[in-house]
């Protein structure tokens, strides 16, 4: 009897492990099969500028551009701000308060993105519109600012961990040499924490690329690369906002649908690559909850 139960138990463990291992392959496989029509029928024509389903034009470059630009700008805003704040929480702030600040930040990091979207529509897009005298505040810039705020807590708390994990002796030695605090931080703490910080930024990058709801509500959803190309105060489109708005409109198994899934697959591959690279940097690993 006991042997029988043991067998059942082992079976349960193996089956559940297989399930959780296979899911990711299943997702990749399903996306690949569904985007096969677009790859096969479209080929390089997918990488053009015009998206117009009725004319069978499925150029995804505007969406790629949007995703790239929105993510890069949000990182340009959030990374310096986040790293300086992390230096503050780990090096300057009294250690007694660090735990409270950190719990607060970790709570903020998990606020549902739809709520950021609501705040974006109700405040940010209106402010951006008034500030720059635009007709509409739904722009690439608005989306980038909103995203930078969304990833800020993640960056702060991961960088704070990275800096905090630098052993105390390095600081003491540097201090013993008569260095000022900023020199201690710049010359001995940050170089040691560097790989973890890079890992943190890569994770934030992945999160920003995959963010859907908040971006979708404030970006304006025009499938065009703005003119001139650096005009950030123009509406645009990211892969995620395109998917969120249009996937239900395209008929299942049409080329249109297939091209949408193809975009999703590109996004997935980029994000997965980022995740794996980030894991190589974050050797201390195991920080999954952000």
């Amino acid at each position: 009897m006991s042997a029988y139960i043991s067998k059942v138990g082992k079976g349960y463990i193996i089956i559940s492990t297989l399930i959780s291992m296979i899911i990711i392959l299943l997702i990749l496989g399903v996306l690949f099969l569904s985007s096969y029509d677009a790859i096969h029928g479209g080929g390089w024509r997918l990488f053009t500028l015009t998206w117009n389903p009725p004319n069978n034009q499925f150029g995804i470059l505007p969406m790629l551009y949007g995703s790239l630009v929105v993510t890069v700008i949000s990182l340009v805003i959030a990374v310096p701000l986040g790293i300086f704040t992390a230096i503050f929480t780990s090096e300057i702030l009294h250690p007694k308060y660090r735990i409270y600040v950190k719990s607060f930040l970790e709570l903020l990091a998990g606020i549902p993105s739809i709520i950021y979207g609501l705040i974006g529509v109700a405040f940010f897009s209106v402010w951006v519109g008034e500030l720059f005298h635009l007709q509409s505040g739904r722009t690439i810039f608005t989306a980038a600012v909103l995203l930078s705020i969304m990833i800020l807590p993640t960056i702060i708390t991961l960088c704070d961990d990275a800096i905090h994990h630098v052993p105390q002796k390095y600081r003491e030695v540097a201090k013993g040499l008569g260095l000022y605090k900023h020199e201690v931080i710049i010359t001995s703490v940050l170089p040691i924490a560097k790989t973890d910080i890079i890992g943190a930024v890569l994770l934030a990058l992945g999160r920003a690329l995959g963010e859907t709801m908040a971006v979708m509500l404030v970006i304006g959803s025009i499938d065009k690369i703005p003119t001139p190309i650096y005009n950030l105060l123009a509406p645009g489109q990211t892969i995620t906002s395109k998917l969120g708005r249009e996937i239900a409109e395209s008929a299942f198994s049409s080329i249109h649908f297939s091209a949408m899934v193809f975009m999703g697959m590109i996004l997935l591959i980029i994000v997965l690559a980022l995740t794996f690279i980030a894991q190589q940097f974050l050797k201390s690993g195991q920080r999954l909850y952000e």
Binding site: S20, L26, L31, L209, T212, G264, V271, T275, F276, L288
Partner: peptide, 28 residues
């Protein structure tokens, strides 16, 4: 390998799960 699978699954953007569900469950 198992770690890679799990971290990878954790990193997948949420909208991709939606599309996967739409294709695999709702339609297939």
């Amino acid at each position: 390998i198992s770690n890679m699978m799990i971290y990878g699954l954790n990193g997948i953007p949420s909208v991709i799960f939606g599309i996967f569900g739409l294709i695999f469950f709702v339609n297939f």
